[in-house]
């Protein structure tokens, strides 16, 4: 039996998501924005694993949430590689990774 309830895990996940979201909105450095995106994915993973654990029964083992986390981790790895390659290409073209200076579409 687990004394800490599902709500505790969900609050941690919600706070982590909000922290990541604040970072995405507030930061100018594209690399840090990208890190905050990873935090948000991580928060979703914590919620998924917690739901799977607390709703599992013998008849329905609720493995789908866990398997989904497995896929999220894989896709996030591919996403990080692609995103960082785009940042490198951006830096080669523009010489900056600050979101404020990347205004080509405004002009």
């Amino acid at each position: 039996m687990l004394p800490v309830a599902l709500n505790h895990y969900l609050i941690v996940a919600a706070l982590l998501f909000c922290t990541g979201f604040a970072g995405v909105l507030l930061r100018r450095n594209v690399i840090v924005v990208f890190m905050c995106l990873e935090l948000m994915l991580n928060a979703a993973n914590i919620a998924l694993v917690a739901f799977s654990r607390y709703n599992a029964t013998v008849e329905r083992p609720m493995m789908d949430g866990n398997v989904f986390v497995f896929f999220v981790i894989t896709v996030a790895a591919a996403e990080v590689a692609t995103g960082l390659a785009i940042i490198v290409a951006l830096y080669r073209r523009r010489g900056t990774v600050m979101a404020d200076d990347l205004t080509a579409l405004k002009k």
Binding site: L2, L6, S52, A56, T57
Partner: peptide, 11 residues
Amino acid sequence: EAPAGLEASPA
């Protein structure tokens, strides 16, 4: 509440 029935998680 604590998970019902399962002592060890299937995961």
